[in-house]
C-alpha cells in the first residue's frame, strides 16, 4: 500500500477510534458537556478526513457516489492490506 494512503488511513482510524471510545463514555455519562463538545469536534474533523480519503482511494462506507466502474469491489479488502 502506498505511503500516503497508509498515512491517511491511519489518521482516519485514529480519529474514528477516538470517536468510538468517547461514544461508549457518553453512553454512560450523557450529561458530561465537555466530553460531548469534544465528541462533536472529533466527528467534524473525522468527516473531513474520511471524505478526503474516499476521494482518492474509494469508499469506506457503502453510501458514497462511485466512479466508473463500480468502485466498492476494488481491493485490497481490509484483511488483505499490508501496512
Amino acid at each position: 500500500m502506498d505511503r500516503r494512503k497508509a498515512q491517511m488511513l491511519e489518521e482516519l482510524q485514529a480519529l474514528q477510534f477516538a470517536i468510538v471510545d468517547l461514544h461508549l463514555y457518553l453512553d454512560t455519562h450523557p450529561c458530561d458537556k465537555r466530553a460531548l463538545e469534544h465528541y462533536n469536534a472529533l466527528v467534524c474533523k473525522m468527516k473531513e478526513v474520511k471524505e478526503r480519503y474516499e476521494q482518492f482511494y474509494g469508499p469506506i462506507t457503502p453510501d458514497q457516489p462511485s466512479k466508473f466502474p463500480w468502485q466498492w469491489i476494488e481491493g485490497p479488502w481490509p484483511w488483505e492490506m499490508i501496512y
Binding site: 491511519e10 474514528q16 484483511w79 501496512y83
Partner: peptide, 13 residues
Amino acid sequence: WIYEKKLQYPVRV
C-alpha cells in the same frame, strides 16, 4: 448495520 471497509486498528503480521 453498515459495513466500514477498514479495520478498527491496523494489523501488522
